[in-house]
């Protein structure tokens, strides 16, 4: 997979555009949400692009109907509106019927930090992982986002992709060939394992770098497929770590920390797990994403400090 240094949304939508050019059965539905790289899709492939207007429930049902007549459908909106708002339609029309519809949510975590809790994508993992048939993808940069577009296109069952905004550091992925494993070790380290994904992966790497100055060697895992979880690989990658830290920009219930805790509780009773996430609250504070992270102990300094506390105990 060629390295890409562009906005994660552009990487995803450019790939999807290429796919749709080749396959007229690919239909893109948006609930009146745009993106820079979607403009050419709309312009060049108008018969495959429908603005559903602000009607997310109907968007899901229409997608199901199109899928029932063999269209490969992608639907798109901001995370709360393309998950929670139309959750029952996703549950019944797409998942219970196990249709190959791909749900694209923009604004993972606190992407829309200052917009307030209506726009935060901080509980969608918890929600979507309750749906038995779905695959949940959480790309951390342009390369994984591009791969996710291909994975979703080829899937005959439901896929949910939670997208970030912006250009995210690529972090060396050259060793990874087909993105079928769902987890990738981006840093080696024997003292503890940090598990993260999405935009927080880069923060996890910074934390690992910082911990080196404290003589702590931290491994970092990119959990880019949250469901189905590759449990066997996860346990292999955690290896001999006695401490596992999860780092995410989601509320603490039901996110990556919960996913990992379920596995460790059953398979690795010897591991101490520290979940670093947003506390159980709606985030009414306002400001930049970085500022909001600092309020919840998710900035690099706070995370390093939390991990050092764990080590000292």
């Amino acid at each position: 997979m060629k390295a890409l240094n562009k906005d994660i949304r552009d990487a995803f939508f450019d790939q999807l555009y290429s796919i749709a050019q080749q396959d007229k059965n690919v239909i893109f539905l948006t609930a009146d949400m745009g993106a820079f790289s979607l403009a050419k899709f709309k312009k060049d492939l108008p018969s495959q692009f429908i603005n559903m207007a602000v009607a997310e429930q109907n968007m899901v049902s229409i997608a199901a109907g199109l899928s029932l007549v063999d269209k490969n459908v992608f639907i798109y909106s901001i995370i709360p509106f393309t998950t929670l708002r139309c959750y029952e339609q996703i549950k019944i029309d797409i998942c219970a019927m196990n249709l190959g519809v791909s749900i694209i949510g923009i604004g993972a975590g606190l992407s829309y930090a200052s917009d307030g809790p209506t726009h935060h994508g901080t509980s969608d993992i918890a929600l979507m992982r309750l749906l038995p048939e779905i695959t949940i993808l959480n790309p951390s940069n342009a390369v994984t986002a591009q791969a996710c577009a291909q994975i979703a296109y080829k899937s005959t069952s439901p896929v949910y992709i939670r997208l970030e905004k912006g250009v995210l550091p690529l972090i060396d992925r050259q060793k990874e060939k087909d993105f079928s494993s769902g987890i990738f070790k981006v840093r080696e380290g024997s003292d503890l394992t940090i598990i993260s994904g999405g935009i927080m992966l880069q923060e996890a790497v910074k934390v690992a770098d910082e911990l080196k100055s404290h003589s702590i060697k931290a491994a970092v895992l990119d959990l880019y497929r949250i469901k189905p979880l590759n449990i066997e690989l996860l346990l292999n990658l955690i290896d001999k770590s006695k401490i596992v830290v999860t780092l995410e920009e989601n509320i603490i219930q039901g996110g990556i920390g919960t996913v990992i805790s379920e596995v460790l509780a059953e398979a690795r009773g010897d591991v101490f797990l520290k979940r670093i996430a947003i506390p159980d609250q709606h985030c009414f504070e306002t400001g930049s994403r970085e500022y909001m992270r600092s309020l919840y102990g998710l900035d690099v300094d706070s995370v390093v400090s939390t991990i050092l506390d764990v080590f000292s105990q």
Binding site: Q57, G65, S67, I92
Partner: peptide, 18 residues
């Protein structure tokens, strides 16, 4: 699949559009 109300017309409209 129906039973929860308000889903069938959207699904039907999707089929009709397809």
């Amino acid at each position: 699949d129906t039973g929860s109300l308000g889903h069938g017309l959207g699904i039907g409209a999707g089929i009709a559009l397809g």
